[in-house]
């Protein structure tokens, strides 16, 4: 009997963790909390895609233009999530950012490598080199939103909802975060895919109680569902 009570208690804690806002950018499409906010019939180059969405959403942030591809994509995904659900109620050192992708910073690695492969034209540049780490996108997101909590960048061959859930659940369970941005940010050439979710505790008084989206439970199944169908 005691065991059964304990089990249902543990399940309740898990149920209480919710996705309160999400964005998904892929294949010339942008979906935010179940709404298609951008779609382009003609195939766009990656740079044009993110720039067009950035302008359409009237985001004012000149730094955006200095960023590399992953940072632009991750930054945009987070802006779209936080436009719908604010994190203003939280101490910023209790907000985490946990991201994952497959190719690390390979796109920018190739750009830096191009500046050093010819000894007669040897021009490595700090403004390119600094982006040859996948976690720089976390830095960009943190700078924009003054987020100072736990951060980690994980690498996985393909989208891995289980890994993200395990990592982020542990952060919540051990009370290291009260809210967490969590997602997948992948760019290689013109192919991109970003899924970003804001995870919060349902019963936390700091949660904005009038989100534009009916929250769903934060778990592997729901992450996979958003990735596949939204």
């Amino acid at each position: 009997m005691a065991d059964a009570t304990q089990q249902s208690f543990i399940r309740k804690i898990k149920m209480d963790r919710i996705i309160t806002s999400y964005s998904h950018l892929h294949d010339n499409k942008v979906i935010v909390n179940g709404r298609l906010i951008f779609y382009q019939e003609n195939i766009l180059k990656f740079a044009d895609f993110v720039k067009t969405v950035f302008k359409q959403e009237q985001i004012v942030y000149p730094r955006f233009y200095k960023m590399d591809a992953i940072s632009k994509l991750g930054f945009l995904a987070v802006e779209l999530v936080l436009k719908e659900q604010t994190i203003d109620g939280y101490d910023r050192d209790t907000v985490g950012v946990v991201l994952c992708n497959s190719s690390s910073s390979l796109e920018t690695d190739i750009a830096h490598n191009d500046t050093i492969k010819d000894r007669t034209a040897y021009f490595p540049s700090p403004s390119v080199f600094v982006y040859t780490l996948p976690n720089i996108v976390i830095g960009e997101v943190c700078i924009k939103n003054k987020i100072k909590g736990e951060n980690a960048f994980l690498i996985s061959e393909s989208f891995n909802g289980r890994l993200l859930c395990d990592y982020v659940d542990e952060l919540f369970n051990s009370k290291r975060v009260d809210a967490c941005l969590c997602g997948w940010v992948e760019v290689l050439g013109n192919n991109c895919n970003a899924l970003m979710v804001l995870v919060e505790n349902q019963d936390d008084e700091k949660v904005n109680k009038s989100p534009g989206f009916n929250p769903v439970i934060f778990n592997e199944e729901n992450l996979n569902f958003i990735m596949k169908h939204n």
Binding site: V97, G139, E140, I143, K148, E150
Partner: peptide
């Protein structure tokens, strides 16, 4: 624990608070 400076991508925080 980890934290982020939320200050600069290539330079550390000036205060060390983070």
């Amino acid at each position: 624990a980890t934290t982020n400076d939320a200050n600069h991508i290539s330079g550390p925080s000036r205060t060390g608070e983070e």
